[in-house]
């Protein structure tokens, strides 16, 4: 195309807006996700499922107390690494797809603004349009500038820590090797740090009401304090389902109801792993 620029007075525009009748077809072509995207998504799901299956195996296996569980943290470490590179690929593809979308809307915009191409309008668009780029080039330059924007900052890292699948695998793999330690800092948004049940830097694996190891831990959504399901439930008056009680933790001002309690699988995992290693 660029050679056409040197062909004398009459210049073909290097960038041609599509005729509106072709636009719908064009959009269809470019709106499909590349097949790699689905393969990557599928692989991410598979990794998370295999991790979840393994964790469930640990949680179920030990409840019988008989069989010693075989805690294989290399499995999860490998899963975590694979997951990170998959998410990276997906992230890059997202950037590419965003750029494609952006370019497409630009094409659409241009098409609406110019008359269908005729000999007369060609002359006009030659004068008026100064796009100077192929569609492909538009996408690639968008992509590159997007990529620069996204990779220069720590935006992939924050994207990664915002991905629930990654957080899950990361947390459970950490707990397998450090059942008593607080989760590393980067998900501190989930914790109210110094408010957690910490004893000498360790997380208490015991219910603060019965002082026994958790079997079926539940966590208050309001204050994140963890209790054994049966003991915290015995604190509520029977008659009213929506009744509020003070959080049994000393110094905690939260008023909690039964509806605020949700199962705490990570705590359950901590206890199982810890007791299995003892």
């Amino acid at each position: 195309m660029s050679s056409s620029r040197r062909s004398g007075d009459f210049q073909l525009p290097s960038y041609l807006p599509l005729h509106s009748s072709l636009l719908r077809k064009f959009e269809k072509i470019h709106s499909n996700r590349p097949p790699e995207y689905d393969i990557i998504s599928q692989s991410i799901n598979d990794l998370v499922r295999s991790t979840r299956d393994y964790i469930e195996y640990i949680l179920k296996k030990e409840s019988g107390q008989d069989a010693a569980i075989y805690v294989d943290d290399t499995l999860l470490t490998n899963n975590l690494q694979a997951l990170e590179s998959l998410i990276r690929s997906k992230y890059d593809l997202d950037v590419l797809m965003d750029s494609t979308k952006e370019s497409r809307s630009r094409i659409r915009q241009d098409t609406k603004e110019v008359q269908p191409l005729t000999i007369e309008s060609l002359q006009e668009s030659t004068n008026e349009l100064d796009v100077g780029q192929n569609f492909d080039e538009v996408i690639i330059s968008n992509y590159n500038s997007n990529l620069e924007l996204h990779s220069s900052q720590s935006s992939f890292r924050s994207y990664l820590s915002g991905a629930p699948s990654y957080q899950y695998v990361k947390n459970v793999s950490f707990i397998l090797t450090h059942p008593e330690d607080p989760l590393p800092d980067d998900n501190s948004a989930l914790q109210t740090s110094d408010d957690l049940e910490v004893a000498g830097g360790k997380i208490s694996l015991k219910d603060p009401i019965s002082l026994q190891y958790f079997k079926d831990p539940v966590r208050s959504k309001k204050c994140l304090h963890v209790f054994e399901s049966s003991t915290i439930n015995s604190m509520f008056p029977d008659h009213r389902s929506g009744a509020l009680i003070e959080c049994p933790t000393d110094g905690c001002k939260a008023q909690i109801s039964r509806q605020d309690l949700e199962p705490d699988e990570l705590m359950q995992l901590r206890v199982r792993v810890y007791l299995a290693a003892k």
């Binding site: 009401i209 003070e246 049994p248 933790t249 000393d250």
Partner: peptide
């Protein structure tokens, strides 16, 4: 106050506390 049910007593308070 920590020994008073109407005030600051909480079930998680231990003998040591």
């Amino acid at each position: 106050s920590i020994l008073n049910e109407e005030q600051d007593w909480r079930p998680a308070i231990t003998l040591k506390q």
